[in-house]
């Protein structure tokens, strides 16, 4: 069949074609992000030191050839800890963004499509969650269960889906009245098929774009919480915790706080560039429809 042949266009060519359409921001952001991910994965082979081993003879060394980012107050190599920090901060940001996004979008899309009672319930739940101050919630959870990364996950999972649910619901309210959805209903398709197969791919764009800035904010959040002592506990090489630890030495050893902070900024910039580029690329696709 002629058309099935065309479907099997080599994947490489299709990817190349897609990549060629990416805006520059998306290309640069993706390359930066890929670099950060690779640096995290290969951290043990990139640096000769261990992030936990203390070397009390070499504390507070300024950046040099042996320690490009210097050493901290326990003599640990800051570059090593920054690279190992990727292994903590990125997965954290990823999970706290995309796990809530999945059920947030699904709930929002279902509520938007169904309307009526289910929608009303969801919106009231949303209002309650949004109205509850996040930091208070997290302090309550930490107070009950003790500090630690798991409890932070828990509190974020409880709250972070609301934005995605709102976005997906709002888009679904527009989408569900479009003719192609009516056509699907008219072909006898059930609501599950219509929501998940037909509508969802068309309502998810704004959530994907939003998730990029959410990713950044979530990394900032864990760093912030660790900084406050509510997040990961020392000596875990987490960027926020490192910034907090270096705070006492900020005048004599600026590198301990500044360089993990810089890593945070670079990661944030990469994600923002991707978000910007994605918005442009996905928007373009949408404009092509008009």
């Amino acid at each position: 069949m002629e058309y099935s042949k065309a479907l099997n266009l080599p994947l490489r060519r299709r990817l190349a074609e897609e990549f060629s359409r990416w805006p520059m921001t998306l290309k640069i952001g993706s390359i930066m992000f890929l670099g950060i991910v690779l640096a995290g994965i290969f951290a043990p082979w990139l640096v000769p030191y261990d992030p936990y081993t203390q070397d009390l003879n070499n504390t507070l060394q300024p950046p040099s050839l042996t320690h490009p980012f210097g050493t901290d107050n326990f003599g640990r190599d800051v570059l090593t800890r920054v690279l190992f920090g990727i292994r903590i901060d990125l997965p954290f940001g990823f999970l706290t963004t995309y796990v809530p996004m999945v059920y947030g979008v699904v709930l929002g899309a279902m509520a938007g499509y169904a309307g009526g009672f289910f929608d009303g319930i969801l919106m009231r739940v949303l209002d309650v969650v949004v109205a509850f101050p996040f930091l208070v919630l997290i302090i309550v959870i930490v107070a009950i269960l003790g500090p630690g990364i798991f409890n932070i996950y828990l509190s974020i999972f409880l709250t972070a889906w609301t934005m995605y649910a709102r976005l997906a619901r709002a888009e679904m309210l527009v989408e569900r009245n479009k003719d192609y959805i009516l056509a699907a209903r008219n072909l006898g398709y059930g609501p599950g098929r219509i929501v998940f197969r037909h509508a969802l791919p068309n309502v998810i764009n704004s959530s994907i774009v939003f998730s990029m800035s959410d990713f950044v904010l979530n990394i900032m959040l864990v760093s912030g919480l660790s900084f406050l002592g509510l997040g990961v506990t020392p000596p875990t090489p987490e960027w926020g915790a490192m910034i907090a630890e270096g705070r006492d030495f900020i005048f004599e050893a600026w590198w301990i706080s500044t360089l993990p902070g810089l890593a945070l900024v670079v990661t944030g910039a990469a994600l923002c560039l991707i978000g910007d580029g994605l918005a442009q690329r996905l928007g373009e696709r949408r404009h092509a429809l008009i």
């Binding site: 479009k178 003719d179 056509a183 072909l187 398709y189 068309n202 696709r285 008009i290």
Partner: peptide, 30 residues
């Protein structure tokens, strides 16, 4: 199945994320 509709806006009446073949394929399969 016996009663089908054709809409006004040619673009809005097709799912933008599905190819022509996928759109028809789904109806045939379903």
């Amino acid at each position: 199945r016996n009663l089908q509709m054709v809409f006004q806006n040619p673009y809005a009446s097709l799912n933008p994320r599905m190819t022509v073949a996928q759109t028809i394929d789904e109806a045939l399969r379903f």
